[in-house]
Design a binder for these strands. Sequence first.
DNA 1: GCAGTACCCTACAAAAACAGTCAAGTTTTT
DNA 2: AAAAACTTGACTGTTTTTGTAGGGTACTGC
Lengths: 159, 159
Amino acid sequence: MRLSTKGRYAVTAMLDLALNGTQGPVTLADISENQGISLSYLEQLFAALRSKGLVRGVRGPGGGYYLGRDSDEISIADIICAVDEWVEYTRCKRGSQTAHEGQRCLTHSLWDDLSEQIFDFLTDISLHDLVKRGEIREAARLEKKAAAAQVVGLKDQAA
Amino acid sequence: MRLSTKGRYAVTAMLDLALNGTQGPVTLADISENQGISLSYLEQLFAALRSKGLVRGVRGPGGGYYLGRDSDEISIADIICAVDEWVEYTRCKRGSQTAHEGQRCLTHSLWDDLSEQIFDFLTDISLHDLVKRGEIREAARLEKKAAAAQVVGLKDQAA
DNA sequence: GCAGTACCCTACAAAAACAGTCAAGTTTTT
DNA sequence: AAAAACTTGACTGTTTTTGTAGGGTACTGC
């Protein structure tokens, strides 16, 4: 498992798509402006996402990108794996059993366990989950704001 | 949160220290051989770990490194943060409320949520936990092996 | 004093991240 | 039907990060 800015860019871009793609395709130019990512870099990321079937491109005017499948069928791990290449971690060979090799193999397998746990964690979270969670939090925020406004005797003017 | 090979190197090196540091300090040369990391790079990593108090160096012949505190007081997140610089993620300003800025801010906060969850996850796992888990798994493996040997009527000769 | 070790520094090679430019394909408009 | 407008898709170049190499000095046990 690997977690870089590249993966972050890909996830936030996909979030953008999930949020704005309900009414027609979203252009990379829009995402570029929204997210502050260069257009050319987005193109590279979406090439990888497209090859994994996570997005679907539509050419011509009015074109852009759709999600490749429903947002609850796309996990965060899917997205990160698509752009981050996931070099299958170098396994130690069975044969070489020197003290050093054994030690290395042990620490490697301990790390692999950890890595797999993070991966499972991200596999269980879908794009839809993230969006939903954001909506819930936003609703809570607004409610809290309204409540606070009521407490101080205002109507809807709170910062 | 950020998860790179640098962080992995640091964690495996610290695991090495936790496993072998019970009887005297461990030299970087040993870790270099064990883990297959260059001495030069290890020095850089350990400089960062030392500045955060995660390891303690002992000079002179017979010297090396100890863990800075008990292995159950050192979390994986501690180690990764020490070497990976953790650039505090660029927050969006409150003032600018254009449509684009708003959109960016929303996706950023969604990512931040996720990132924080991973961070919490790694904060809850200590070096000691990882080592212990490895021991348990190793014990289970040996037991299984012994059981399998018994089934096929052997004593302790199974591969 | 000598040898082994941490500790500090600069330079450097390779790879990955990131950005600029252009060609190719689609659809709308004339 | 042809041109124009738009957007993907691929290629090339620049900057940043990784990781290595090799020097040196300070400290410490023998």
